[in-house]
Simulated assay, not measured.
Amino acid sequence: MNTLKVILLLASLSGLLVLVGYFVARGAGVVIALVLSVLMNFGSYWYSDSIVLKMYSAREVSSQEAPVLHKAVESLSAKAGIPKPRLYVIAGETPNAFATGRNEDHAAVAVTSGIMKILNRDELEGVLAHELAHIKHRDILISTMAATVASAVVLLSRWAVFFGNDEGGGMIPAIATAIVAPIAATVIQMAISRSREYEADAGSARVTGKPEALAGALRKLSLASKAKPMDANPSTAHMFIVNPLSGDFIMNLFSTHPPIEKRIERLLEMKASGVR
């Protein structure tokens, strides 16, 4: 059901992009929209992992430097049935983690140095299994596609103001498009991101057999993130296991993550149903 939901949301996002392109320049605008989307997705597919790792000054660590991390990921990767990803550490006290890479064979998991200070072994494994689930489910590719198409919608919507003409209905519709289309694209992108977080939580619970451990980790990470938000780029917020940004009203309205309480509730329901 979640897979169908994601397909429908991606189709809606693509349809919105084509619609905005048509408004900007009719048939030529549709072509521009499609070409822009393909180029942006191509660039993101091949280079997004290296870009985001450099953005956070993530450093690849060897098994000698981080034996606990490597041993846990090696064991969990085998259980999940995927190749062991590269491991990176980000210097920072705010605990968090993310996965990146275009596919299972070219993937990486990054954790902040602070995450290993507040989580016990089971909780850390729950977080790592969550990131491995993202890799296995190809969520990185899905999220990247959604983010780039949404960005293309925003870019084309801005062009609408400059290309608004009598044929397109004048400046008022152009301005309305420039305001409404980016909001709609963002809402759809956020819905996709939230759906994949639920699936990754469930995937972690199935691999570790300890949904309550991930629930405990999420509670700790959320509290720590609220107390000291990361200096994170908003465009990468969807990648982290918990929202690294401060949770004001607007941020919650367009959140990349489901409410922590809902995620914990679902995990505890899995425990009650016998997933251990």
Rank of each mutant, 00 (worst) to 15 (best):
R86D: 14
A66D: 11
A191W: 01
P95C: 02
T112H: 11
A200G: 11
L69W: 08
R26A: 15
K5Y: 12
A213L: 04
L17T: 09
K84Q: 14
V180K: 02
G274E: 09
R102W: 13
G92P: 03
L34Y: 03
R102A: 11
I51C: 02
N103V: 00
R196I: 02
K5N: 11
K54M: 10
T256K: 06
G92R: 01
S195L: 12
E60P: 07
A97Y: 07
E197A: 00
P229G: 00
F240T: 01
E131T: 05
Q189N: 13
H130R: 12
I140H: 04
L16G: 08
A213V: 00
S63V: 06
S195P: 00
K271H: 12
S246A: 15
V109Y: 11
G29Q: 01
G126F: 07
T186A: 13
T112N: 07
I115Y: 09
N2F: 13
I32D: 05
V187I: 15
G21N: 06
V154T: 14
E269H: 09
S77H: 06
N41T: 10
L16R: 01
E131P: 10
L76G: 00
M40K: 04
L253N: 01
P67N: 01
A217S: 09
V187C: 07
L13V: 03
M145Q: 11
P67H: 00
G209E: 07
L8G: 12
F98W: 10
T144W: 11
S37I: 00
A80K: 10
A25C: 04
G126V: 01
A97N: 07
M270N: 06
M171Y: 13
G21Q: 03
I7F: 14
V111C: 15
F98H: 05
N120C: 06
G21L: 06
R194T: 00
A129R: 04
A152P: 02
H257E: 10
A146R: 01
A178Q: 07
P83S: 07
K117P: 08
V187Q: 11
K84F: 02
F163Y: 14
G164D: 09
A174Y: 04
S225N: 02
Y22W: 13
S225T: 08
K228S: 14
H130W: 08
Y45D: 08
S50V: 12
A227G: 15
L223G: 12
L214C: 09
V153P: 03
V187H: 06
L128P: 09
R276P: 00
V207D: 03
M40R: 12
E123T: 06
V242F: 07
L128T: 03
G21A: 05
S12A: 15
A110M: 10
V68D: 14
A78I: 06
G169N: 09
P234K: 05
R219T: 12
R102S: 13
P259S: 06
I142E: 00
E123R: 02
I115Q: 09
